[in-house]
Simulated assay, not measured.
Amino acid sequence: MTELQTKENNSRISSIDAARGLVMIVMALDHVRDFMHVASLTQDPTNLQTTTAALFLTRWVTHLCAPTFVFLSGVSAYLFYNSSPGSSRKKFLFSRGLWLMFIDLTVINFALWFDVQLHTVIMEVVFAIGFGLMVISLLLKLPVRAIGLAGILIIFGHNLLQGVSFKNNPVLDFIFAVFFRQSLFTPKPGFAFITAYPLLPWLGVILTGFSFGQIFKLPELVRKKRFLQIAASVFCLFILIRGLNFYGDPLPWSVQKNALFTFLSFINVTKYPPSLLFILLMLSVLFIVLWLAEGKNNPLVKVLRVYGKVPLFYFVLHLYLIHLLTLLMVFVEGHTFTNLKFGLLRNGRPEGTGVDLGTVYLIWIAVVLFLFPICKWYGKYKQKHRGNRILQYL
């Protein structure tokens, strides 16, 4: 989650902020569900053998969030650097990336677990973005097309490594997991490290986003047309590869108990780590969103931009708010402080607690509405103090 200045004629590019704002709103739904849904501690919402269509789609629609954040971080890095190329901006990209990695392992992890001893540490999407920005800062002397080609090769090729394992060499296995595979490691009793967002696949996404930054320098009508063309091409490629059903995702689709669940199987692509098909499908949706938002200044776009202008601020704030609401839910259900369970893989919520899916949606809407005036205030404050070096990192 990064917000670098993206300028066009001295104003921000509205489609970027609107797309980012949309997925930030959707992201809150996923986190409310994950923290508060009655079945979230015991049920995988994408397991077609146990889930419902409503629960599956509630989870599936939020798949759009991480690819959008990572891809647009690459776009923003391109626009930021190329608006005034120089060593100072190169250094800022590197330091910004390092800062995001630190924030992820500390502030964001505490928001997830409320555990001051951090018995559980998880590499989240912000860590992957930070790493990507650092890599971009080291590649700026290369042609933009070369950087983009490297990103595309990673996206299309990393699934070849999905079955590789080094279980007999713990150090090598850990390093491999950090870059290629979601894994849980317990190097000592009472501590776990989770590589939820392996770095290499997401690096492919951010490098590709960096190269696509060139499109945003085209005239508005031209890039709007390009968005639609790219969306159609990427989606058709997804349909072709998914239909062949032999590469691009470790989970093949199959005929299910009815047509709806067969369709859900077809779109049930792997996020951890993001498979080729996951990335193709989600980026095709992203380009549709950009196409719809490009050149628009209607009330909906204005609302979305309020959130999209302050992504890191919103990301951190909404996690703390949802976690606090989770504890409030637990107390309302009759539990006390002594019932809270913190520590290894625990965020305080006892088993058997939670609300139904309908209530999850109501809480989600309340969270988004509550954060709107706060994000609006912070966006104006940040704009007013644009020269503040500290605010550039927040």
Results as ranks from 00 to 15, higher is better:
V135R: 02
L160D: 01
I129C: 12
A146I: 08
H119W: 12
V126F: 05
T106F: 07
F166T: 11
G148V: 13
K167Q: 06
R89P: 15
A128L: 03
S95F: 15
D104W: 07
F127T: 04
G151E: 12
S183A: 14
K90F: 15
L112W: 11
V178Y: 03
L133V: 07
V178L: 13
H119P: 06
G86P: 13
N159S: 07
V126Q: 13
I129N: 03
F156T: 10
G157P: 00
S88F: 13
I155E: 13
F102E: 02
F102Q: 01
A146Q: 12
T186Q: 13
P187L: 05
V125C: 05
K141M: 02
K90Q: 15
L149K: 07
S165D: 10
Q162Y: 10
F110N: 02
I129E: 15
I136K: 05
S95W: 15
V164K: 15
F166Y: 00
L142D: 04
G148N: 12
S183H: 06
N109M: 07
L112Q: 10
D173Q: 14
K90W: 12
G151V: 10
A150K: 06
F110L: 03
G157V: 06
W99L: 07
F180N: 08
K91Q: 14
N168W: 09
V125M: 04
F156A: 15
V125K: 11
P170D: 08
H119L: 09
A177V: 02
P187C: 08
V125H: 12
V178S: 03
L184P: 03
L139T: 10
W99D: 02
L105G: 01
L133C: 01
L149D: 09
M123I: 11
P187G: 00
D115H: 00
T186Y: 05
I155C: 01
G151M: 02
I108A: 02
S137R: 04
L140W: 04
M123Q: 13
I175G: 02
T106R: 06
F94Q: 03
G157E: 13
G97Q: 08
